[in-house]
Every structure is written in structure tokens, then in C-alpha cells.
Write a protein that binds this DNA or RNA. Structure first.
Length: 479
RNA sequence: GCGCCUCUAGCUCAACGGCAGAGCAACGGACUCUUAAUCCGCAGGUUGGGGGUUCGAAUCCCCCGGGGCGCACCA
């Protein structure tokens, strides 16, 4: 465990000339037993070490891959020290690029230096670490031990980049809006509460940036987007983390039909960028993201999956009875729209493999969406559903301040009735759209959920570097 | 929040009512072309914590804690 060098004596920097993958690719044509005459410096972590008396082989891994180090008596300084390295030690090594007699491209070490000793070991050198709790709590260990974890987080990073670049290319302007909100609004969810000392003000962590983004549209940003964290004080599940990343975008002069086309092109585009195909396999089932995606109304899909022909005009008692028959609880305050949406979620949504755009939601459950141009009681809203879950949410935005005020009032009534998910009335937002919000299409896309699809991850925690867990020692709250 | 499953050495796992073990890592040693190198040696544990049943508990029961899955809530 002790490599001998006090940590205080390791160097402050190391000159790296090549990454391991560059060595492996750059001297590809070197024959077995040949020496190139080229000297390189590499650095990384020792993952395997085979000593053999006067010679030793190590696998050095860096972020690009791995390369073998070949140490030999008479060539390598401090061979004994090299042979005593521990798995997990960081070292820098300089030497000639050679290919061993057995054909392994290697750096034949002349000088090497310990950059950081590993006081703890990284698990079984062959089996790694598989305990999921260790993998999520000590992601640094997981990443060194498991190639699939490295790949998952790298794909997530590339996904975020691809989303940005495509939005930029489409002329959307990236903005940042507050995460500390005075008013809980913009999304139906229970918020986290926090406090600002100097202002003596209780604040909410945002559940969605929606209202601020639309205020920027009012301000003249005709195409805006934000990629950022939202916080929702709700249960944790394989598909839910309390903080999660959302892409939200607003597009002036567009409606939800335009947004549908944008959504499917964006998702298919980033899939092609990141995993080079739109034809995925998710959890063993084929999943084809190639546009165009199916468009179907919520009522059509309910009919397909349950045989019941329902709508927001179906008598409330009938809807309530059907919903109750699924085992779901029914609240007295719910109207037909809410009951219909609940019934859809209970019976149909999880059965949809998709991708499919579920269109035309009840107005009752959509306080920020514009009334459907030819469907009373409905709004122009869709949810893209993939693998039985929502990948996002989008609508023709509600632009009428009077209508918006009424919708907020309905939400306020629910809040008064004890519904902590209901939005509060946001006067600042109402004032903003009184200046005039043009026809606007908006969308939200769950970045973690999309990352799950692209990495074939069953659990959202796989695509979040440090998912929310209870504290290790069972202790209480933040210090 | 409720239900089911799970927790054994640093890691991966055995032992499933009868002496807590193995492989890898670590530690000591042999070996000048290895590929999870090999070989010899040594050490490693409050079996998640607490209580109970029993002649005897890692094993059965109860409570507590962490994690996973499902339900509920949601993207």
C-alpha cells in the first residue's frame, strides 16, 4: 500500500507529450521486436503490473485508453521501485516507443516518477467493482473499474454538447435564468425551499425555467434555450432524480406542430451525432428514433389500449369510475380533464414503446398551454413518449394574459385545497406577457432520460455522475 | 411513505443451524518479453448495527440503518 514516496514530494506538474491512444495509433506499424527510436512521455494510472525479476510490464491507463509500459534492468531507472508500484498509482513515464517480441506496443521506460500513490485499491483487477452502492457513492472508483460507466458518462457529455451545437445551428440563443425563484411556478411539482440570509427571503429552487424563458421571448429573443438543472421535491425512482437536467426551448412564431418536427429532428440528430445511429436497442427491444414519429391524440391512444372511447366531454362519473377501477385514487376536486389524463397515465402511457407524440391534452392539466384551435377543453400540447415514459413536454404557449390569469387562479384554488404541486400566480410573468408574447412554441426535453436511451441504461442514476443518495452514515441534514 | 429482496476480508464471491473460507488486491520472496503472467510464503473479519431464540447463529425471529426493485408522486 505504501509506495515509499511521501505525497508532499511528488512533482507539481508533469510534461506529457502523448496520450496513450496516440502512442498506440501513432506507432501502429512498428513490427514485433522493433524499436522506433522515438521517445515519448505518458502519464496515467497503473492498472496492471507484472514483474518478472529484471523486467516488468505495466498497463498505464489515461483518459484516452491504455498503453503498456515496459521496464527493464539497465534501461529503466529505479526498476525495483517500479516493480513495487501499486495498482492504482498515478505515474509519469518517459521512454522509447517499442513493440515487444510478443507484439505489444509499449513505452520502454527510461525515467518514471510517482505522481500520486493510491492509498486505497480499486477493487478486483479483473472483476472491478460491481456493488451498485459503491458505484454510485464512489463514482471515482466506478469510473476506473468499469469501462461501461466511463462510456455512459462520456456519451452523456457528448449528448449535451450535441444538443447545444444543434440548437445553436438552428439559431437558438443559449441563456441562463434564475434557479432561485421567489414564486413557485412554471411547472407542476413540489419544490425545494431555501433561504437567502441577506434578503431575509425564503426562496424556491426552480422546478422549471419556463416563465423566465418566455419573458425573454417577450423581450425579443425569438429563439431561446437553456440547458440546466431543475429541482423537484419528489420521490426517487429508476427514472427520477431530485435534480435533473432539462433542455427547454422557446420559438417565436411557431406552434406545437412546428415544435414536433423540431423535437424529432433534434433527438434523431443528436442520436446520430453521439451513437452514430437512430436505430437503437433499448433494454433488449428495438427502438427506432428515425423521423417522422407517430402522432396520435391522447384519446386515440386510450381507445387503442383500453377499448374505451373517452374524451374530456365524457361524464365525470364515468371517468372517475374507470380510473378507480385501475386501483388509482380519485380526488373529489378532479374534473374530467384531470381524470382523463390520470386514466391515460395509468393505462396507456407505460404501454407505449414509441416514439410517439401524444397530442392534445386536457386544458385542466395544462395551465401554461394555449387552448386547442379546434378542440374544446383541450390544449395544443404534446408529450413525446419513448419506452413507456415521457421524454419531454411541449405546447403552443398560452399567450393571452387574461386566459393565463384564469389558469393561475384555477391552480391557486388547487393550492388552497392543499395541492403542493400546483403553481402559484406569478404577477411578474403576467405583467410580462401583457407587453405581448407572440405566438410561441415551447418544448422541454429530459436530458437524463435521453441519455438513458442512448446508453441503454435502465436506471437514471447510471447517467448522473453523482445521483442523490441518503448520506452514508445515516446522519441528518446539510451542515 | 408502504411492500419485497439484499448487506460476509479492500474488491468479487463461498459457507445457509455445527471450527468463517477462496480468488484478486496488499505485504515478504523467486523469475530478463509479460498480457487477469506464474510460483512460494505471510497477513487479513464485531458476517451493516442492536436485541432475541438455541447447547450452538453469518444462517432462524424482532427492531434500526444503507442499497436495489415494485407501488404511490412525477420528467
Amino acid at each position: 500500500m505504501d509506495s515509499g514516496t511521501p505525497i508532499s514530494e511528488v512533482p507539481y506538474r508533469y510534461d506529457v507529450t502523448h496520450r496513450s491512444a496516440e502512442v498506440v495509433a501513432g506507432w501502429d506499424r512498428l513490427g514485433a521486436g522493433e524499436e522506433s527510436g522515438d521517445v515519448v512521455s505518458v502519464a496515467g494510472r497503473v492498472m496492471l503490473l507484472r514483474t518478472q525479476g529484471k523486467v516488468a510490464f505495466a498497463q498505464l491507463r489515461d483518459s484516452s485508453g491504455a498503453v503498456q509500459l515496459f521496464a527493464q534492468s539497465g534501461v529503466t531507472e529505479d526498476l525495483d521501485g517500479f516493480a513495487r508500484l501499486n495498482l492504482g498509482d498515478w505515474i509519469g513515464a518517459r521512454g522509447e516507443v517499442v513493440r515487444t517480441r510478443r507484439g505489444e506496443l509499449s513505452v520502454k521506460v527510461r525515467e518514471w516518477v510517482l505522481l500520486a500513490p493510491a492509498r486505497r485499491s480499486f477493487g478486483d483487477k479483473w472483476r472491478g467493482v460491481s456493488d451498485v452502492e459503491t458505484r454510485y457513492r464512489q463514482r471515482e472508483v466506478d469510473l476506473w473499474a468499469n469501462e461501461s460507466s466511463r462510456r455512459t458518462l462520456r456519451i452523456r457529455s457528448e449528448l449535451v454538447r450535441a444538443l447545444r451545437e444543434r440548437m445553436w445551428a438552428l439559431g437558438f440563443v443559449e441563456v441562463e435564468t434564475p434557479m432561485l425563484h421567489v414564486v413557485h411556478s412554471g411547472g407542476e411539482a413540489r419544490p425545494f425551499r431555501t433561504h437567502h440570509n441577506a434578503l431575509g427571503l425564503d426562496l424556491f429552487l426552480r422546478v422549471a425555467p419556463e416563465l423566465y424563458l418566455k419573458r425573454l421571448v417577450v423581450g425579443g429573443f425569438e429563439k431561446v434555450f437553456e440547458i440546466g438543472r431543475n429541482f423537484r421535491n419528489e420521490g426517487i425512482s429508476p427514472r427520477h432524480n431530485p435534480e435533473f437536467t432539462m433542455l427547454e426551448a422557446y420559438w417565436a412564431y411557431a406552434d406545437y406542430q412546428d415544435v414536433m418536427a423540431l423535437f424529432e429532428e433534434l433527438v434523431a440528430g443528436v442520436a446520430a451525432d453521439v451513437v452514430a445511429t437512430t436505430e437503437l436497442t433499448y433494454q433488449g427491444r428495438p427502438l427506432d428514433l428515425t423521423p417522422p414519429w407517430r402522432r396520435a391524440t391522447m384519446t386515440e391512444l386510450i381507445s387503442e389500449h383500453t377499448g374505451h372511447s373517452l374524451s374530456v366531454r365524457t361524464p365525470r362519473d364515468e371517468l372517475a369510475g374507470l380510473l378507480a377501477s385501475t386501483g388509482a385514487s380519485v380526488e373529489e376536486s378532479w374534473g374530467p380533464g384531470k381524470l382523463l389524463a390520470e386514466y391515460y397515465e395509468k393505462t396507456t402511457e407505460t404501454e407505449l414503446w414509441g416514439p410517439v407524440f401524444v397530442c392534445d391534452f386536457p386544458e385542466e392539466v395544462s395551465p401554461l398551454a394555449r387552448r386547442h384551435r379546434d378542440g374544446p377543453g383541450l390544449v395544443e400540447r404534446f408529450e413525446p413518449v419513448v419506452a413507456g415514459r415521457e421524454l419531454g413536454n411541449a405546447f403552443s404557449e398560452l399567450v393571452d394574459p387574461d386566459d393565463q390569469r384564469e389558469r393561475f387562479a384555477a391552480q391557486a384554488a388547487r393550492r388552497a385545497a392543499g395541492d403542493e404541486e400546483a403553481m402559484a400566480l406569478d404577477e411578474e410573468y403576467l405583467r410580462a406577457i401583457e407587453y405581448g408574447l407572440p405566438p410561441t412554441g415551447g418544448l422541454g426535453l429530459g436530458v437524463d432520460r435521453l441519455a438513458m436511451l442512448l446508453t441503454d441504461s435502465a436506471n437514471i442514476r447510471e447517467v448522473i455522475a453523482f445521483p442523490t443518495l441518503r448520506p452514508e452514515r445515516g446522519e441528518g441534514s446539510a451542515q
